[in-house]
């Protein structure tokens, strides 16, 4: 999986949930969407990338990925 592609996907999802004023709810929305729609190797890759640097990921996307890892 190309990391750039996953970053773009995560940011696009975040852009939708960003309309939610409560950022905790928004991050939960992004997390839930990724959990329900992304195949495990994609999730694994974005988690690894986020832990490595997370450059290019929006703040909301980073917060959501952090929630996945718990």
């Amino acid at each position: 999986m190309k990391t750039e592609r996953l970053i773009k996907m995560a940011n696009d999802i975040s852009d939708f949930f960003n309309a939610e004023p409560d950022k905790e709810i928004a991050a939960e929305g992004v997390k839930s969407h990724i959990m329900r729609a992304w195949e495990p190797r994609m999730r694994k890759a974005i988690i690894a990338y986020c832990q490595e640097s997370g450059d290019g990921l929006s703040d909301l996307a980073k917060a959501a990925v952090a929630k996945i890892t718990g």
């Binding site: 190309k2 729609a37 190797r41």
Partner: peptide
């Protein structure tokens, strides 16, 4: 119990040999 690959994800995965 895990979601599978969507079509564009399949293409991405093919290009990294998975």
């Amino acid at each position: 119990m895990e979601p599978g690959l969507r079509i564009p994800n399949m293409f991405e995965a093919a290009l990294d040999s998975s």
